[in-house]
Simulated assay, not measured.
Amino acid sequence: MLNVYGIKNCNTVKKAFNWLNAHKIEYTFHDYKKEPAEEKQLIAWQKLIPWESLINKKGTTWKKLNPEQQAAVVDEKSAREILLAHNSMIKRPLIELENELILGFDEQLYTEKLLK
């Protein structure tokens, strides 16, 4: 079973739900609003993908940060700190596979990775 992380009312997460449900793929959803990501999760995720990929710089949460806060995100540790403080800034959905993560919604990638 897959673990899917995100925010329930996010349009991109809804697209992922629709795709997963249409393909009858079981998953457990973890809503950042109810179950915030923990540091140990972020550390594990950063081992699988570059820390820069985890940050949604197109979202309103990032854009609400002042330029000094944005400029301070320069490495894994500073990225983890900002993401722990602002879980909604984690790119979503985040799907955990065995030793791999899928970020965002990409129908072709979902087909390649999830319909084996």
Rank of each mutant, 00 (worst) to 15 (best):
12 T>Y: 06
12 T>K: 11
13 V>M: 06
14 K>P: 00
14 K>N: 01
16 A>N: 02
17 F>N: 05
17 F>C: 05
17 F>Q: 09
19 W>F: 10
19 W>K: 01
20 L>W: 00
20 L>G: 02
20 L>P: 02
20 L>Y: 00
23 H>S: 01
23 H>W: 01
24 K>P: 01
24 K>V: 02
25 I>L: 07
25 I>P: 03
26 E>P: 00
26 E>R: 08
26 E>V: 01
27 Y>G: 04
27 Y>T: 02
28 T>K: 13
28 T>P: 00
28 T>I: 06
30 H>T: 12
30 H>C: 08
31 D>P: 00
31 D>H: 07
31 D>T: 05
32 Y>P: 01
32 Y>M: 08
33 K>R: 14
34 K>D: 10
34 K>H: 12
34 K>E: 14
35 E>K: 14
35 E>F: 05
35 E>V: 12
36 P>E: 13
36 P>Q: 11
36 P>M: 13
37 A>D: 10
37 A>F: 15
38 E>R: 15
38 E>Q: 15
42 L>P: 10
42 L>M: 12
42 L>G: 09
42 L>E: 14
42 L>S: 10
42 L>R: 14
43 I>D: 12
43 I>W: 11
44 A>P: 01
45 W>P: 00
45 W>E: 11
46 Q>W: 09
49 I>E: 15
49 I>V: 15
50 P>M: 07
51 W>N: 05
51 W>P: 00
52 E>V: 02
52 E>C: 02
52 E>I: 04
52 E>R: 13
52 E>A: 09
53 S>D: 15
53 S>V: 02
53 S>N: 12
54 L>F: 10
55 I>K: 05
56 N>G: 08
56 N>R: 09
58 K>I: 01
58 K>V: 01
59 G>E: 10
60 T>W: 07
61 T>C: 09
61 T>P: 13
62 W>L: 07
62 W>H: 12
63 K>S: 10
64 K>Y: 00
64 K>Q: 15
65 L>V: 04
66 N>A: 09
66 N>H: 09
66 N>D: 15
67 P>I: 02
68 E>F: 04
68 E>A: 14
69 Q>C: 03
69 Q>I: 01
70 Q>W: 08
71 A>L: 08
71 A>W: 03
71 A>I: 04
72 A>D: 05
72 A>N: 04
74 V>M: 09
77 K>W: 07
78 S>F: 10
78 S>Q: 03
79 A>L: 03
80 R>F: 06
80 R>Q: 15
81 E>W: 07
81 E>Q: 14
82 I>K: 12
82 I>M: 15
82 I>A: 12
83 L>Y: 13
84 L>T: 09
84 L>I: 08
84 L>G: 11
85 A>R: 10
86 H>W: 13
87 N>K: 09
89 M>S: 11
89 M>F: 07
90 I>Q: 11
94 L>N: 06
95 I>K: 03
96 E>T: 04
96 E>I: 07
96 E>K: 05
97 L>R: 06
98 E>F: 02
98 E>V: 13
99 N>P: 00
99 N>M: 00
100 E>T: 03
101 L>R: 06
101 L>N: 06
102 I>G: 04
102 I>W: 04
103 L>F: 12
103 L>S: 08
103 L>Q: 07
104 G>H: 06
105 F>A: 03
106 D>Y: 07
106 D>S: 13
106 D>Q: 14
107 E>F: 11
107 E>I: 10
108 Q>H: 11
109 L>W: 01
109 L>F: 05
109 L>R: 13
111 T>C: 08
112 E>R: 07
